[in-house]
Design a protein around this nucleic acid. Structure first.
Lengths: 204, 204, 204, 204
DNA sequence: GATGAATGAGCATTCATTCAT
DNA sequence: CATGAATGAATGCTCATTCAT
């Protein structure tokens, strides 16, 4: 834990293999049904190696959560930073969310389902810290646009609700219905709605 | 001969205590987390007694399901039979559903959540049989009204969907939102809609 | 835990077999080195059976302690009650202690060694209660003799120290020296000394 | 060439840190309870580093023993060599022992307790060799005094027993009783007794 | 019907030790 | 010399289930 590189640098192939295997196992079999042995087999790691990287099964499950959340948050932030324009940014935000959900349905499901699982209790602090980093990132992008008058000066929470909220809700539904409603369309509609809600209107 | 509801209505105080305790445990802790020991404590029964009444934990959970389902079905059928009139019957059906849900939220939740749990696999037959008895009961009530021209001659499945479907969906939402939407209102609206959909329209 | 038969009635052959096996294993290999598997083999009980009777390895070890202590205490009290006379009683007390130590060297060693082991922490209450029962028994025997003027009115603690203290100390040494000093002689000497210290002296 | 004390006095800061940490851990938690991880934390060394310096946990514990023994032996020999006179030497020997015990209670305790621990089996050879070097040193000091007629010509073993034996016994007691008996007094008495036993008596 | 002792497979976890860098 | 990731055997413990009374 030297230098504190932002905690983003927890690399290690093994570690990632284990997280990936755990995600799959937890998703397929549930947290309780999935055994360390299952995860061991799937990750090609040894029992001891798993416990070298994660103190307990609970902590492993929590790490999977944080890791997934981080990946999602970083993807969104990166996309946002890549689109400095107000309109572009809002659309990119929504679009990148849907792409991520579409690319990582398992992880999305996991994030939705496990948010209030018992094993998350001990990670609330880390979760809060990580979430703060995310919202700080969002703020940094939005603030200039608001100051320049391109976007309405709504509180951050509302701002997030208007952009990400509908996307999340639709994703929830999309994940639970195998006869997939059209995500492309949803993304477009939701992005449009978000933009309408956020743009500063010159005239009444 | 009484109503002949099969021998599903197994009595026995012990048995009922165990079912009740199991329902609570499964609801509070989940099927996997709840142990036979938990259920034993809560039911004031002995380990052996539980296994005397139920072959296995799976079968106990399934029995809880069937028992709950039966209670719901019998309530609805009884109410229906008590209201011979077409309009009265439809309204009574919807109203009694909501009352039951309101009176037995835990059981309703259990019925919603566990429908596709692993332990249900071995009970599909019994479930089908029981469900058949229920739909037969419904048919018995509906048929005369249809024949008399009071209700439209739609297939039973559609008929059920129109009356019970919306009620179930609303119940699902109602259970998951602690800031209770108005169930009274919902019941009235849904009943009205069902009636509009079912009544035979004299004129185009 | 009905009726509270004085807690003395924890019978059950299995239970006793397990305690006996645990005593042997702990004595021979130490608490940490001895595994549940060792105890299982030696007691011819199953793993589960051990955990049916004792909540944990710690609690098993503590139970062994209490059981042994109880056996010793009951032996001494019984002997005391069997000898109403002051002189007889004191001699019987010392003699029965030495006989018990000689008959149960392993258990004695265990009682000496484990008194302050980590696993005893959670049993302090039960230990205190049991010890109280023992000292109450002693008091009941001594009081009449003191009141009648046969024994000196010293506080119970001192009284115990003078009779049992030296016996314990000698036992400790005896257990640690394989080239056994003469226990017979020690018993006689210690009993004589205890009597000299306790008897009421008529004249200066 | 310096004193040639073998290569037992291996230096290396790391090594010494590990030995020190191991001593503390073994003393506080016992050999079995103390884990390599505990020692690692306390020594600020890495897991691998410990295994670089010591082949195994057993060997580490044995090394701690030899190291402590060596320190004690060297202290006594040095003191003896610093006092050429017969009377002075005997008193210095006893006094330096007590000082060392008083300065290093943990290490003394460890030497007392672990002498017959399982892990010592594999070090008996090294232990014998080191002990021989010690007794050789003692012999070198005593021989001239015996030849000159200042000390009685008793066998070395008896000689050691008379001087160091009582000191050890008293140390054992002193370590186990927190309400410290007077070590100063003991040292004086024991030294006096040793001198009385060793001095050559001119006349019957 | 009821009781609780007995069973044993299965699980999470620990820890000494090895090894590549 | 130092590091820490990797290993896997071993351990304490859980829990559904069986069975004698």
């Amino acid at each position: 834990m030297r230098k504190q590189r932002g905690n983003y640098a927890k690399s290690g192939l093994r570690r990632r293999q284990i997280v990936r295997a755990a995600l799959n196992c937890f998703t397929e079999m549930g947290f309780l049904d999935a055994t360390i042995e299952d995860i061991r087999r799937r990750s090609n790691a040894s029992n001891g190696s798993i416990y070298h990287h994660f103190k307990s099964k609970d902590q492993l499950a929590a790490a999977v959560y944080l890791e997934g959340l981080l990946a999602w948050q970083e993807t969104l932030l990166a996309e946002l930073e890549a689109h400095p324009g107000a309109l572009d940014g809002v659309f990119a935000l929504v679009r990148s969310h849907f792409r991520w959900v579409s690319d990582h349905p398992d992880w999305t499901r996991y994030l939705f389902q496990m948010r209030h699982a018992g094993f998350m209790a001990s990670t609330e602090d880390a979760l809060a810290e990580q979430t703060k980093r995310f919202t700080d990132g969002l703020t940094q992008w939005f603030t200039p646009h608001v100051e320049r008058g391109a976007l309405r000066p709504v509180p951050l929470e509302i701002l997030i609700s208007l952009t990400i909220g509908p996307s999340l809700e639709f994703s929830r539904i999309w994940l639970s219905k195998p006869d997939c409603p059209d995500m492309e369309l949803a993304a477009a509609e939701i992005a449009k709605a978000a933009w309408q809600a956020l743009r500063a209107k010159r005239a009444g």
